[in-house]
Amino acid sequence: MTPPAATEREDAREAIARIPWYHTLELPGGLATAGWVDCRKVVDRVLLPADMSGMRALDVGTWDGFWAFEMERRGADVVTVDIPDPAQWDWPPRMYVGDGDTTRRSEIASTNLGEGYRLAHELLGSGVVQEQVSVYDLDPERLGTFDIVVVGSILLHLRDPVAALASIRPLARGPVVLNEAIELIPSLVSPRTARARLEGDTAVRWWQPNLAAVEQMAGSAGLVVRRRSRPYFVPLGAGHPPRPSRRRQLQSGLQPEGREHLVAWWIGIPHVSLLADASPGP
């Protein structure tokens, strides 16, 4: 007869294998999820305190929960917000008419967000609390205020990123940490000019900012940036499709968007971490 612990581990392994993961999570029993990205290597690059004991922390747009569980491990009392219903995401208006509408409906039907978070939460025996609310509708009356608010890689998915940041601001009684994806080449070419490349036609992807733009969006929303990390690269995880053929890669190199893909395939997705205060500036 198989010992109960081994059976449980086998059940967990099967449950994990059924879920398409976004985050690479280390779960009990030596199990790891095959995520789209692998943030484990960059946990020291983000501007989070090493010890978060006694802090009430908010993780905005948690997905599978990597940063929520990381903050819990550092001692924080963590609340996460997310919208598990993909129908409520910022789909481009174009995706509500004609062929786009069909595509949108089928993508919504095949997305089961929140499943990974729930399984990881259970396996970790986590005490993280999740609230299901859009980043645009955050309300201090409902959620309270937080010693630290962490926003991870969501601005590029929002049609109105400044409204989202302005909505986050009243919840912060301490720093707001933005760990945001940036485009590498526009960040290097235009270090002082805020620029973004607009997508917004078929996917829930909108303004792809350079570093200066993330900083300026924060300023526009009433956040005062105090510190910023050097750009770092979040490696793709085991669940990410392999790099395409050399020929496809060469073709990618001809387009600005494709050149950013090349950076992600070979180095990782460029990010910056900003630590900002919510207080109005002088």
Partner: peptide
Amino acid sequence: RTPRARFAGDGDLVLWW
């Protein structure tokens, strides 16, 4: 061919993308 915008948004004017 590449859709790009300069983000203003931080000044005293009502200028955005």
